[in-house]
């Protein structure tokens, strides 16, 4: 098997440390053409002065829910302040922000809260971009942040871990929930990049050793099932994205490939993530085994393929299995 070593395994992003806060001046609205998720844009009510009002008696739960609603509103602080979500928790009319957040000597209440609003989107866009570098590069610097923000609006993080932030991203890209040129192509790339993340973190299960292989009696092969490594994904794609992804990640010049089916295996060996294209018959065989078929059942699934050549198939089996075994794809027999 011609496996392709990927840069992905070279390192691992630091998640969660020192959350990034904006770019440049946090007081400036962070704009992506046509998209406002921060700042004074979005028609904030002008607050002439902080009129003396009753002291803020909001409880902790109200303050936290209000703050989250305001700083995570993609329309900016003004929209956040006016949103039903925020007003459900604290509503003191125009200038609620000034009633909840104190100014400092150098910054207004809004400028201070803006720091958290900027940080929310930029940080998560960055994380999505790190997990989907080829999608980011292909979509481009205007389209990708928009796509990411739409995704974050639809699927805000609900886990303590950033590892799970983007699990629905490929599905979101494919769904058509947002206008996107080359949707299918991007969805295929996202599917591959997500699978690489999953394989990178998958449980570590020891593969069968040559000694263990030899101990399995021939008679067992007809009824037993091979247990496959959890660090493996098999993908059927509409575009041949494998080379394209490598080219983008390695900084080579790229052209968009024409639509053509591609089957891929993504797996981990020695803690590195590898990708390789598979022929339809090898893909069918591995898919059947992965879904729990016995060897005879898996062979039968292959025989049902159009153009199946029994002689060629049986002749190639030994080499295929040896390759897959040395890649550590099998970890038990049951």
């Amino acid at each position: 098997m011609s496996a392709r070593r990927d840069k992905h395994d070279a390192g691992r992003k630091i998640r969660g440390a020192a959350p990034r806060r904006g770019r440049g001046s946090e007081a400036a609205p962070a704009r992506i053409e046509g998209l406002v998720f921060a700042g004074h844009a979005g028609g904030l009510p002008k607050v002439e002065s902080t009129r003396p009002r009753a002291p803020l008696r909001a409880g902790l739960e109200a303050v936290e829910n209000w703050m989250q609603a305001v700083i995570t509103n993609a329309g900016g602080l003004g929209d956040g302040e006016r949103s039903a979500d925020a007003r459900r928790h604290i509503d003191r009319g125009a200038g609620t922000i000034e009633q909840v957040i104190l100014p400092s000597r150098n910054q207004s209440s809004r400028e201070r809260l803006q720091i958290y609003a900027n940080a929310y989107f930029w940080r998560l866009i960055d994380i999505l971009g790190e997990e989907y570098p080829t999608v980011r590069q292909t979509a481009g610097p205007r389209q990708f942040p928009r796509l990411a923000v739409e995704y974050l609006k639809a699927h805000p993080s609900r886990s303590y871990s950033l590892n799970f932030l983007s699990v629905k991203f490929p599905e979101f890209v494919r769904s058509g929930a947002t206008r996107l040129p080359r949707r299918e192509f991007l969805a295929d790339i996202a599917t591959v990049e997500r699978s690489m993340e999953d394989v990178f973190d998958a449980p570590d299960v020891k593969p069968l050793t040559p000694k263990e292989w030899k101990r399995i009696p021939m008679s067992a092969w007809m009824s037993k099932r091979l247990r496959m490594t959890p660090a493996m994904r098999l993908l059927e794609l509409r575009y041949p994205v494998n080379e394209y992804i490598s080219d983008v990640r390695e900084g080579r010049k790229v052209e968009f490939p024409r639509k053509a089916e591609q089957r891929l295996i993504i797996f981990r060996r020695n803690f590195s993530v590898w990708r390789a294209p598979l022929t339809p018959i090898r893909f069918k065989l591995l898919s059947a085994l992965q879904s729990g078929a016995t060897l005879p059942e898996a062979f039968a699934a292959c025989a049902a393929l159009k153009g199946f050549d029994a002689e060629k198939f049986t002749g190639a089996l030994k080499e295929w299995f040896q390759g897959w075994a040395s890649d550590g794809l099998f970890c038990g027999v049951e």
């Binding site: 959350p19 902790l60 739960e61 936290e64 829910n65 989250q68 993080s157 886990s159 303590y160």
Partner: peptide, 24 residues
Amino acid sequence: WTGVAGRNGHDLLPVPLNEETLRH
């Protein structure tokens, strides 16, 4: 705090410094 209502903003957000927060 990092989020409420089941969400997580993955940021270290400040709390009001008062008796209620302290007890909580």
